[in-house]
Computed example of a mutant assay.
Amino acid sequence: MDSSTQGGKAFGILKSHQEDKLKSINEAFLSDEQYAEVEDLPEKLDMFKKKYMEFDLNDKGDIDMMGLKRMLEKLGVAKTHMELKKMMSEVCGGASKETFSYVDFLTMMLGERNAILKLILMFEGMSKQEERRHVGPPAAKTFSELP
Rank of each mutant, 00 (worst) to 15 (best):
Y102T: 01
D64C: 14
S89K: 13
V103T: 13
R133E: 14
R113Q: 12
I25E: 09
A10Q: 09
L14D: 00
F100K: 05
G94R: 09
E112A: 09
M66Q: 13
E112F: 04
S3V: 13
L57N: 12
E98W: 01
I13P: 00
I25P: 02
M122G: 03
L45H: 06
A10H: 01
M108H: 02
G125S: 15
G61E: 04
S3R: 13
E54W: 00
H134E: 10
E37S: 14
R113H: 07
Q18W: 01
S4F: 14
H134A: 10
R70A: 14
K128G: 05
N26R: 06
E37M: 08
M108T: 08
L45F: 06
M108V: 05
I116S: 14
F100L: 09
M122D: 11
L84C: 11
I63R: 01
I120G: 00
S24D: 10
H17C: 08
Q34R: 11
D104S: 06
K21F: 04
Y52L: 09
K60L: 12
E73C: 10
L119G: 14
M87A: 07
N26I: 02
Y102V: 01
G8A: 14
M82G: 05
K21C: 06
K21P: 00
E37A: 13
M66G: 03
C92E: 02
L121C: 04
A78Y: 04
R133S: 12
M88T: 04
K51D: 02
T5V: 14
V135L: 15
F55Y: 15
Q34A: 07
Y102S: 00
R70Q: 15
M1D: 01
S89M: 11
S89A: 10
M65G: 04
A10C: 00
K85G: 03
E37L: 07
S24P: 00
D56V: 01
G7A: 13
D62G: 04
M88S: 05
S4D: 10
F55P: 01
I63W: 02
M88I: 12
G111I: 05
Y52P: 02
P138S: 14
E19G: 04
L121H: 00
K44E: 09
K49R: 15
E27P: 00
T107D: 03
E27Y: 08
A95I: 01
D32V: 05
K97Q: 12
T99C: 10
N26T: 05
K51F: 12
D20Y: 06
